[in-house]
């Protein structure tokens, strides 16, 4: 039996815009296995970021259920949700969302502070993680003193701080140039293969295609289709040959 880590059941999300109701998600059903690299793809406004927020417990669905590790997220207390965000998930955002008053090192230690990890232990871990993402020499720089790619690396190190089982990445390469974006994708992929972290990424970056195990195409708040790795390989070949 497959080890399902994320499961959504008829997830609906509506936003109220004045007198209009915008249905961003219109009944999403997906299952994600442990250790998978999943890309949620779709044009802007398709609902992929909204789905990302639902899976990461960053927002509540209007209807439907989200199960993570077999737990129904709507039944968790505030404290459990905070612990879930702290320990189980690492978030990576398009705009990095680093705290600009804290250095790279300070950003990476923050989730460990929330987890109650002692001073020395968390400092060592932060140094290790920043080394891992290649920022060992810029540890004590403030985010404003780092380039976009470096900031995203800090965000990745921060996402890994409490050894999460899921990495959620919302358009992690959208603000980066092609080469830096590629490096970030490779880094996330390496975490996926080396550490067995489940990666769920909302993206419309085609470079994300060839590292994904499955691609979930979202359109108008619905799952349009789910493509597997073998189907992807063919398409990537075509995309690649167009590029040359």
């Amino acid at each position: 039996m497959a080890d399902i880590v994320v499961k959504t059941e008829d997830v609906v999300k509506e936003y109220r815009m004045g007198s209009n109701i915008l249905r961003a998600l219109d009944g999403i059903n997906i299952e994600i296995e442990r250790g998978e690299y999943i890309s949620l793809m779709g044009p802007s406004g398709s609902g992929k970021s909204t789905l990302f927020n639902m899976i990461g417990a960053l927002d509540r669905p209007t209807e439907g259920q989200v199960y993570i590790d077999g737990q129904n997220m709507s039944q968790l207390s505030q404290r459990q949700i905070a612990a879930f965000r702290c320990h189980r998930v690492g978030y990576i955002f398009q705009s990095y969302n680093l705290l600009h008053v804290r250095s790279a090192h300070g950003n990476v230690t923050l989730p460990m502070i929330f987890a109650g990890i002692p001073d020395r232990q968390r400092n060592e871990k932060a140094e290790q993680l920043l080394d891992l993402v290649g920022l060992g020499d810029r540890m004590y720089h403030l985010p404003d003193e780092l380039s976009g790619g470096q900031r995203q690396r800090v965000a990745i190190a921060r996402a890994l701080a409490n050894d999460p089982s899921i990495i959620l990445a919302d358009e992690p390469t959208a603000n980066l140039d092609t080469i830096t974006g590629r490096e970030i994708i490779d880094l996330i992929k390496r975490l996926n293969t080396d550490q067995g972290v489940t990666v769920i990424s909302a993206t419309h970056d085609l470079k994300m295609l060839d590292v994904s195990d499955r691609i979930v195409d979202i359109r108008d708040g619905l799952v349009e289709r789910i493509r597997n790795r073998d189907e992807i390989d063919i398409e990537v070949g075509e995309v690649g040959s167009e590029g040359h």
Partner: peptide, 12 residues
């Protein structure tokens, strides 16, 4: 779907 370790409570 298997039940994993339950989600703990966040500390103060």
């Amino acid at each position: 779907m298997q039940q994993r370790t339950p989600i703990e409570e966040q500390i103060d």
